[in-house]
């Protein structure tokens, strides 16, 4: 395990985190999808690096699956979806991007502190990256909370999956193959169902604004 590959994985991790911040502040849906694809690409890069450095062959396959699913298929589905739903050039009004960035930074610090005691046990390439993975998960979570439109919420959901996947390659040498295939299948089916769902929502409400979906409350 060379220090060069460690540095490379750290670089990919940093890119992942930066993209997570960029997604948090991105208002255009098209750009958001492209960022998501880019995040997938960074994930593929780090997985391949870990695979090369550790000689774990199954990681090449999992990098392949990630590439097919998160860089090609899912962004394609999303692009098709927004074209069909006619929301391609939608711009979301986000209030207070600077303060959201600050919350994001707090989340990163929190994640690093949480992951610090356990990342020492990692035998894999990079120790600090478990904290970054957790930070990515938490920031996608924040994105889902703050967005009111359906498509960005879904992208937040998918990018959470990216963070989790990164955790799997940074803490361990990736999950067993059968589990990874199962997860990929779930994500794909979930995406298709979400697509169906968005058409149903728009048909019912004439918009994809999730704030319409707040009728069911305890009275």
């Amino acid at each position: 395990m060379t220090s060069f590959s460690t540095q490379l994985v750290n670089l990919f991790a940093a890119v992942l985190l930066l993209i997570a911040f960029a997604m948090l502040s991105q208002r255009r849906i098209v750009a958001l999808i492209n960022l998501f694809a880019l995040q997938g690409l960074a994930l593929v890069g780090s997985t391949v690096t870990v695979a090369y450095a550790t000689g774990q062959h199954h990681l090449y396959y999992s990098a392949g699956i990630t590439f097919a699913l998160k860089v090609v298929v899912l962004p394609l589905i999303l692009h098709r979806l927004i074209r069909k739903l006619n929301v391609k050039w939608d711009i979301e009004t986000l209030i207070n991007i600077p303060s959201m960035m600050l919350v994001g930074i707090v989340l990163v610090i929190f994640a690093f502190n949480l992951a610090l005691p356990i990342s020492e046990f990692s035998r894999s390439v990079s120790r600090g990256t478990l904290g970054i993975a957790l930070a990515c998960v938490l920031m996608s979570f924040l994105m889902m909370i703050t967005r009111s439109k359906a498509v960005p919420q879904v992208i937040g959901f998918l990018s959470m999956e990216n963070g989790l996947f990164f955790a799997a390659t940074s803490a361990t040498f990736g999950m067993p193959m059968v589990v990874e295939l199962g997860i990929a299948l779930d994500v794909l089916v979930g995406m298709v169902i979400l697509g169906v769902f968005m058409f149903q929502i728009r048909e019912q409400f004439d918009s994809l604004d999730i704030s319409h979906l707040e009728k069911l409350k305890e009275d």
Binding site: M144, Q153, M160, I210, L213, K215, L216
Partner: peptide, 17 residues
């Protein structure tokens, strides 16, 4: 219905997260 769509969206997102 509007209510069932909302319920299903909530179900999907909350359980997914």
């Amino acid at each position: 219905t509007a209510a069932s769509l909302e319920a299903a969206w909530k179900y999907f997102i909350l359980c997914g997260v």
